[in-house]
């Protein structure tokens, strides 16, 4: 089934929740994301058995969550996106729809600080538990040390007196 017919199918069930389209999918209302996901999985014609990828993008003024769904039986795929405010990024967990969302949402929480409501075990998955901040946010400033381990190292090729350390910068 092509993307447009998939979107129309969702639109039939959720007429007001499907927002603008793009080539591979559609934006949906963040409030209704979980219900839409449930529909995508359970609907006979959509049969989205798998959430292959769930991630976030920090676009500066807001966050965008991206859900890649695929169906093995129907051999089609769809991308759902939602936008969230940066200062209050809260959304329903889809862990009860696809079990695989558990760790993917934990990663998203770890790196972007998105809070997933009703997630069974929302804690950091890669960084240490006591890490401060969410590194993939655009306004993240890395700490200068972690447990006494400094984040800087002197560059031996640059003589004394000049700013000669490798620091956490974008350079």
């Amino acid at each position: 089934m092509d993307v447009q017919s998939q979107i129309n199918l969702i639109k039939g069930k959720f007429p007001n929740e499907v927002l603008e389209n793009f080539a591979t999918g559609t934006f949906v209302n963040a409030e209704k994301l979980k219900a839409i996901c449930q529909f995508c999985r359970d609907n006979e014609e959509l049969s989205m058995q798998v959430l292959t990828c769930m991630t976030a993008v920090d676009l500066g003024d807001h966050l965008e969550l991206v859900y890649h769904l695929i169906s093995y039986s129907k051999k089609h795929d769809l991308v759902l996106k939602v936008t969230l405010p940066r200062d209050n990024a809260v959304i329903d967990s889809v862990e009860s729809v696809w079990k695989t969302a558990d760790w993917q949402e934990r990663e998203c929480f770890d790196l972007f600080g998105v809070n997933f409501k009703n997630h069974p075990d929302l804690r950091r998955i890669m960084l240490p538990d006591d890490w401060q901040g969410h590194p993939l946010r655009k306004d993240y400033t890395p700490p200068t040390e972690y447990h006494g381990m400094s984040h800087t190292r002197k560059n031996p090729l640059i003589p004394e007196g000049q700013s000669a350390t490798t620091e956490n910068s974008n350079g």
């Binding site: 381990m149 400094s150 984040h151 800087t152 190292r153 490798t166 910068s169």
Partner: peptide, 19 residues
């Protein structure tokens, strides 16, 4: 030795001789 390719990363130790 020094963090190498990943030394600009927020999570990488800049040389194991720091520990």
């Amino acid at each position: 030795n020094c963090g190498g390719l990943f030394q600009s990363s927020y999570s990488v130790l800049k040389g194991v001789d720091k520990v």
